[in-house]
Structures are given as C-alpha cells and as structure tokens.
C-alpha cells in the first residue's frame, strides 16, 4: 500500500520499460562484449607478467631488441586512427554522411598502416632469431640471452592484438561501404567505432606493459 514508493519505481530509470543506461540494447551489448574481450587480453597479459616475473633468466631491455621509436610511430598511427574514427562517429551522428565515410576510410588507412608496421616488425624480429619456441640458437637474440618466453609472449600478444586489428578493418570496411550507400545508421558506425577504440585501448596496455616496462 506504499503508493509513493510504487509510483517512484514506475518512474525511475531502473523501473523497467526504459534502459537504465539510457542506451540502446545494441550499445549495451557492445560494451559488455568489450569487457569480455578486454578480459581475454587481461588473461594473456597476466600470463605474460607471471612468466616474466617468475623467470630465472633476466628479461631483455626492449630497446635492445626493438626500435622503440618505430613502436612509438605505430602507437602514433593507431591513436590518430582513433581520432579519425571518433570524427567519423561524430559526423554520422550529425547526419554528415560524406564526412563520416571520408574519415572511416582514413581510419582504415591508419589501421592498415599499423598492420603493415606490425608485419615489418615481425619480419625484423624473426630475422633476428625470434621463434615461438624461443630464440634461434646462434641468432642475435640468442646472443642477448633472452628467455624462451620473450619471443613467445611477443608473438602471442601482438598476434592476438593484430588479429583484432584485422577484424576491425574488415568491420570498418563493411561499415564504410554501407554508410556510403546509406544502409548503415549512425548507431552502426558508433558500434564499429567502439570496437576500433577498444583495439586502440588494448594497444595502450600492450605498448606500456610489454615495450616500456
């Protein structure tokens, strides 16, 4: 018989009939997916952390293996592509389809450049003797005395991130084409944007925890 409280429930944003997040179910679901996928990378990063900290063989200084300025360039490219993506989403929301499509293609260009850089990095590091099972005996990396987990962690972390970048590029390409044809609403661009920013976010963590720390 608590009419006041009952009325309060019916009106509140947790009272059913509306989204408590003031977001469509699509956006809510995308965020939940991002949390799950993010935790997958957390698991991989924790595994890497465990193996690095438990290792009796000292972990190499990353600057001795990688060209850190080059990795910084990759970071710059990815952050820029995130900014172009944000602009595309903003444009789509404002109804400016041409700008949205243009900036989508710029984002795709940035992502492709990132992948190209990553591929170059892999070639360079493989040439220096990095293999999944450890440093190739007699190679540069073996001379540095790196533990086996170093190249393995490198390939797993960057490989999984790279696969997410690749799938992001596929999603972005489809979004760009369909937005150009007027078939994708602004919300679709926003969903693609959330995924792309998530990919950038993961790179921030990998860049710091694998390349810098």
């Amino acid at each position: 018989m608590d009419h006041g409280a009952h009325a309060a429930v019916m009106e509140s944003h947790w009272g059913g009939g509306v989204s408590p997040f003031a977001a469509t179910w699509q956006k809510t679901m995308m965020w939940i997916f991002i949390v799950t996928d993010g935790l997958l990378f957390s698991g991989l990063l924790c595994g890497y952390g465990f193996l690095r900290m438990a290792n009796t063989i000292p972990w190499p200084k990353q600057s001795a293996v990688f060209s850190i300025p080059f990795i910084a360039l990759m970071t710059f490219i990815l952050i820029t592509s995130s900014a172009t993506m944000g602009t595309a989403v903003g444009a789509a929301r404002l109804g400016d389809r041409r700008t949205a499509v243009r900036f989508l293609w710029l984002t795709i260009l940035g992502g492709a450049a990132f992948l190209g850089c990553q591929a170059y990095e892999w070639t360079h590091v493989i040439h220096d003797g990095a293999r999944l099972y450890g440093p190739l005996s007699g190679s540069e990396l073996a001379h540095l005395g790196v533990p086996r987990q170093f190249p393995a962690a490198f390939f797993i972390l960057t490989g999984f991130h790279g696969s997410h970048v690749l799938s992001g590029l596929v999603i972005l390409t489809i979004t760009a084409l369909r937005t150009g044809l007027g078939k994708t609403p602004a919300q679709g661009v926003e969903m693609a944007g959330l995924y792309w920013h998530f990919v950038d976010l993961v790179w921030v963590f990998i860049f710091t925890l694998f390349y810098l720390v």
Binding site: P20, F21, M85
Partner: peptide
C-alpha cells in the same frame, strides 16, 4: 581519455561507465 572521450563514456549515463570500469 580513450574510454571517456573517444568511446564517449564521459557523456553517457554514469552507470554505464561504472559497469565497464568495474568489470574490467
């Protein structure tokens, strides 16, 4: 900054940002 500005969490309802941040 990426989550708040690029992914717009700063401008969404607070409970969404709390759910994401807490979960992760």
């Amino acid at each position: 900054m990426i989550g708040g500005n690029f992914m717009h969490l700063r401008f969404e309802k607070r409970n969404l940002a709390v759910m994401v941040a807490a979960g992760l």
